[in-house]
């Protein structure tokens, strides 16, 4: 175990130091429930790995923020939604888009800057949008999308359409005004939104203790009379169940919830980040709690045959290989004037 020295009052964010629950009892589930969740997480992992590889080959440009290590959060949370519900996410959103139903082909082609990308090569890694699945975007200005999520929820209240909006952001967003104002108005107007803070311990290279006076982000809800929750994000079934409670609250009472999910990203902030602000030991300790390994082991426990799991993994490999080939073979983006002003 990595521990803080006596002279350093601030603990390194190891699992033992920052996880919420001490006991680690597995949650009741079935292969039928967990199997598809594991598949989604694995597909996201493989898609992220494929994009990292393409980035290192110079086939993907700009900023590339990977979610490896945090997959259980977007997959579990999105699994608690109905199809018509909305998701609003950050620039680290490939996984959220995939979990909401955007294909790996459309995502990877977008990262490659191709015409067949989900936004025709206009957005790239940070700006994935998909109207068909109500994925309302990936946003590159930290915290600025929180009011947008509140706005989608406002529209649901205005029309009484019973939809719920999930808004994802990191703990680094909790220090900026967009988050504060979005939270404040969602609480005041009782907007059906679930605000999900993926606390991955680092705002770029800055650990929580150097950016937040109060490290429990969920406590911000208290000041607004808003419901809150806080739990560990390595068990995808737990994430699904706990987010489902908040989604149910939003759908039936219209009330928002601030949820903090404690997690950890295994890779750098972006591809250009060598991660010099943390030790290899720290990262390795978290990798021992890899949500994918945990889910795979659990699948065996709840009776999914190893052969079935391997078949699922082969299926994922084929899906991502196909998506990479699709992205590689797709025509270059060719349009940049058409979508500035909507005519008519």
């Amino acid at each position: 175990m990595v521990t803080a020295s006596a002279s350093d009052p601030k603990p390194v964010p190891t699992p033992d130091n920052v996880r919420v629950e001490d006991d680690d009892q597995p949650i009741a589930t079935t292969a039928a429930e967990l199997g598809p969740l594991y598949r989604q997480m694995l597909a996201i992992r493989r898609m992220e790995e494929a994009s990292a590889k393409a980035y290192s080959q110079g086939k993907i440009g700009g900023f590339l923020h990977l979610i490896i290590g945090q997959e259980a959060v977007c997959v579990g949370a999105t699994a608690a939604l109905e199809k018509d519900d909305y998701v609003v996410a950050t620039y680290r959103e490939h996984g959220h888009a995939y979990a909401k139903g955007v294909s790996a082909r459309a995502i990877l082609a977008e990262l490659y800057g191709k015409k067949t990308g989900c936004v025709k090569g206009l957005g790239g890694s940070m700006h994935i949008f998909d109207k068909a699945t109500n994925f309302l975007g990936g946003y590159g200005i930290v915290g600025g999308h929180v009011p947008i999520a509140a706005g989608a929820a406002f529209a649901s209240k205005y029309r009484d359409d019973k939809r719920v909006t999930l808004c994802f952001f990191g703990e680094g967003a909790s220090t900026i005004g967009g988050f504060a104002e979005g939270l404040s108005l969602a609480a005041l107007w009782k907007l059906p939104v679930v605000l999900i803070c993926e606390n991955n311990q680092y705002s770029m290279g800055t650990p929580v203790y150097r950016s937040l006076a109060v490290e429990d982000v969920s406590l911000r809800a208290v000041a607004h009379g808003m419901a809150r929750d806080r739990f560990d994000g390595d068990d995808v079934v737990k994430v699904k169940q706990r987010i489902a409670e908040a989604v149910e609250r939003a759908r039936t009472t219209g009330e928002p919830t601030l949820v903090e999910v404690v997690t950890y990203r295994f890779r750098g902030h972006s591809m250009s980040d060598p991660g010099l602000y943390r030790t290899k030991d720290e990262v390795e300790e978290w990798k021992r709690r890899d949500p994918l390994n945990r889910s795979r082991a659990r699948l065996l426990e709840v009776g999914m045959p190893e052969a079935d799991i391997v078949a699922l993994e082969d299926d994922v490999r084929a899906e991502i290989e196909d998506a990479v080939k699709f992205a590689e073979d797709s025509p270059a983006a060719d349009e940049y004037k058409k979508y500035v002003i909507k005519e008519g």
Binding site: Y86, V88, L136, G144, H145, V146, P147, I148, A149, A150, G151, A152, A153, F154, A155, S156, Y158, R159, G177, G178, E181, G182, S184, L185, L188
Partner: peptide
Amino acid sequence: RRIIDAPIAEMGFAGIGVGAAMVGL
């Protein structure tokens, strides 16, 4: 319902407007 007094939070309510417009209002 349609004439909405907002507290002093321009970034918040401008953003709520953008989000609401995105989904059809």
